[in-house]
Amino acid sequence: MDTILKIDSLTKKYPSLFAVSQLSLSIDKGSVFGLLGPNGSGKTTTLGIILGVASATSGNFSWFGKKNSSSDRKKIGALLETPNFYSYLSAKSNLKISAKIKGIDLKDIDRVAEIVNLKDRLNDKFKTYSLGMKQRLAIASALLGNPEVLVLDEPTNGLDPQGIAEIRTVIQNISKMGVTIILASHALDEVEKVCSHVCVIKKGKSLIQGSVSDVLVGENLIEVACSEIEKLKEITTKFSGFKALKEENHYLLVTLKDSSSSIEFSKYLITNNIIISHFVKRTKSLEEFFLETTKDA
């Protein structure tokens, strides 16, 4: 598998803190890599360094497995933190400027505007755009010239639910074309929905990395409910594969040992005359994982 980006013990120190600390990761071609962390965890700083706008205090990174050069960035479409455009220029002129820097045919402007639904508004000044439209324009600019890699820092920031869904679909479609995507986000469901790999960071340190399915299905969680909750609790704790239990609103959240399966558990409940009204195998939500892992790091 080709490595698109390799980061090696990257550190960025600001006078008062380490924004990124000994971060290492490697991103394969074609993956959708999520950089997940709460506010201030160093996502933007990391992306800023790999995009050449900030210098690292120590550590290295390399794009496309070779020595870095600024022209590599012409093969990367990026949105970093905020849409950066001239407010007094039309959206079209702004895209023209980006296209010219990247050496892309100006015809591509209409295509990317179509993707983000801004075609009718291209001649309007950037300052007349709404927040969501500005964000879309930034995504359009990142898409110019079909880049090999897309770096998106909180791409759905400021979008309404429909806009969020549209942008996610755009990301998924682009990913199907083999484009590598690096996505920074603090929204867990976003990473869960669109990413294949994830690195969770807090205070600039990597807490865990791996494929989303590995990170997500770390544990065996089952939601179960019945009319007699107390009896259910009692029986459940006696199950051989039982590990932990938590009472949620209308059901019990049962954690099973890795070795035991949900089928065994349901059989066990039936043989113990529990009439189950609700039984759902839940992959561990990133959210729970996230709160757990970032709480005390």
């Binding site: 995009l51 050449g52 022209s71 590599d72 960035r73 990367i76 990026a78 970093l80 950066n84 820097i101």
Partner: peptide
Amino acid sequence: KQHVIDGL
């Protein structure tokens, strides 16, 4: 910043 990101 954006110009540098875009590859200058």
